[in-house]
Design a protein around this nucleic acid. Structure first.
Lengths: 359, 359
DNA sequence: ATGAAAGCGCTAACAA
DNA sequence: TTGTTAGCGCTTTCAT
């Protein structure tokens, strides 16, 4: 285990060489105080001679009490968090805003790989000025608890409100209701639903009233509520993740095996576009025409060129903007502003996958 | 700008309360030395009373000279890096290995957003013990230079070798050659090629001999070479990124506009599966049957369920393992091992998208 | 505009 | 096994 900084020059050495005090040398680099251009040049020259590439971040961090690092707690397993374009776009918007301020993004797995330890060690002990819980907060969230215990301030994306933490949400419920109203207006009465994961545990299958009450994650619970603001769906299927294959499985169940033919839904509302895309694929495989035989609507507004020639009818949400809003919330927290909650608007965009109910 | 740690207890306070010295208290937490279970408990109890949640990482880092952070330099723009399942799987494998050792992954944009500044500020000044250049190194790589100037050790994934840096590569060239041999064995003689980006700049279009010589990034240049180990392709199209839409555009050019009908290729080898998938989609749109009219092979071995019922013939590379190997290289560097180069094997897996040449 | 001094919170030699 | 001592490299009052 070699020491990382072995033999590298320090600010003190540079100052000595330049014939100034360390504090002056510090100013030459930070620019945070008055200094003659001339002395600054002398310091910089000395630095160049010693191949000193600027103040060691570790020293700076300890002294200033800030690490310049924002921990991003990504849900479930990291691989999956990235496979989902939705996460990716949010992360992108977030990095954009934070990057402009020189803040770095530390990726932190949301779940512990080790049995018996509730959170990833990074949650408990990595240096970070703020943590962003991108995929919300569940009841008794162990990550939230660990962070709060450490005194790390948090920003919540799409989740239940947390005392003192900024929240960035979207019009989940209203958007879902709008999608359903669109289907109803097209004459659909038997509408099925494919839902995002209800909570931390991964479960697949049909949802009954009892299970419905257990929906804990806000995206799914809000969207479930939005649907019910308009109609009572004939069937709800819970998926373990927002992935095409799960949407396909769900639609296979809905259109094929599970629901009696006479009651077969004429429309499916999926809580994400990836799930909806899987549903479109399932419909195709079953020889059903979309939208003539079955209408399918999604949520997110992703661009899915490979679904061509179909274009999903979908509730578009401003994903990049959501990430940017999270980033601004982080900056606000760092600047000492009062935490606020923002709710971003969504809008239904009709594609080719929804049409009049058959017959 | 509130100080991050305002008012939080320190190890000294805990030690005082427990009636021991700071160093003893330190041992109670780190376990890096002999201590009576009894004293440890006393320290831990004192910590609990003061709501002290463990040593401040900043102090620990400065003292030990290690930040526990691994910078991952992701190519081009972050959004794109994540959109590509290839990056994602590598990153996943990397995080897996590093996570087990308690090391955090700091995402660092590979290109500067600010004009005139060659690298992202994080490259120049964020705390990191090692940096991983996941997507290789180009000639005169500004990131590499900045990191080396700082004395940050680097690990290179798929790129030209760097003095003193471990390298993780795959059998790019041999794998490509194998794919081409497969096509040749099927009777194909007119084979076109869709290539990954040649360098930092993003260019789209046909490739001539002069441009061919400029291929700078190892994945594309190695794969170009592998193809030429077997045949001279009739046509090569360069894409700006490994995305489905670019593969589609390329194949549209190859199968439609650009190449005279008489010379239309009967097979396309794409340097990535995403590009190949785009090519399949283009072929479908053009009314060409795959593989009866045109065979298409890719590289990576991704699972692309939405391409169903087609399954890509592809050169499978161990993506997760590549990430894991990068992670192990990082650990080796931190442990002071001699840097080594590893080359991971690939293997051609036949799907449904390649078949005998037409006629 | 510059310098002196103090100390951020911690760990690692070393001594006891 | 525990305590003493000495910084890690830097920034920030506060004098000058």
């Amino acid at each position: 285990m070699t020491r990382n900084n072995a033999g590298r020059p320090t600010l003190a050495r540079v100052a000595e060489r330049a014939g100034v005090s360390v504090s002056t040398a510090s100013l030459a680099f930070s620019g945070a105080g008055p200094i003659t251009p001339e002395t600054r040049d002398r310091v910089l020259a000395a630095a160049a001679e010693l191949a000193y590439s600027g103040p060691n971040p570790l020293g700076r961090q300890l002294r200033s009490g800030r690490s310049g690092i924002v921990g991003v707690i990504i849900g479930d397993n990291p691989g999956r968090a990235f496979r989902d374009p939705v996460s990716v776009k949010v992360l992108d918007g977030l990095m954009q805003v934070l990057g402009e301020q020189g803040l770095g993004v530390l990726l932190v797995p949301g779940t512990s790989r080790v049995e018996g330890v509730p959170v990833d060690p990074l949650v408990a002990s990595a240096a970070m000025d703020v943590a962003v819980l991108v995929w919300g907060v569940v009841t008794d969230d162990p990550n939230l608890e660990a962070l709060q215990r450490r005194g790390v301030r948090v920003v919540v994306g799409e989740g239940r409100p947390v005392e003192g933490a900024p929240l960035v949400a979207i019009e989940d419920r209203a958007g879902s209701a709008e999608a359903i109203r669109h289907l109803v207006a097209l004459g659909h009465t038997r509408i099925a639903e494919i839902a995002l994961p209800f909570g931390r545990e991964e479960r697949t299958g049909p949802v009954d009233a009892q299970r419905l009450a257990q929906a804990d994650r806000t995206p799914s619970s809000n969207r479930l509520a939005g649907v019910r603001d308009v109609v009572e769906p004939v069937f709800t299927w819970e998926t373990p993740a927002s992935l095409v294959e799960h949407g396909r499985d769900a639609a296979m169940a809905i259109l094929g095996e599970w629901v009696p033919d006479s009651e077969r839904p004429t429309a499916i509302f999926a809580q994400s576009d990836l799930l909806a895309a899987g549903a479109v694929i399932a419909a195709r495989e079953l020889g059903l025409r979309v939208p003539e035989d079955v209408s399918i609507a999604g949520f997110d507004g992703l661009d899915l060129p490979w679904l061509s020639p179909d274009v999903l009818t979908s509730v578009h949400q401003p994903l990049g903007e959501k990430g940017a809003a999270l980033g601004r919330a982080v900056l606000g927290l760092l600047a000492g502003d009062e935490p606020t909650a923002v709710t971003l608007p969504v809008r239904l965009v009709q594609g080719t996958t929804t049409g009049p109910a058959p017959r």
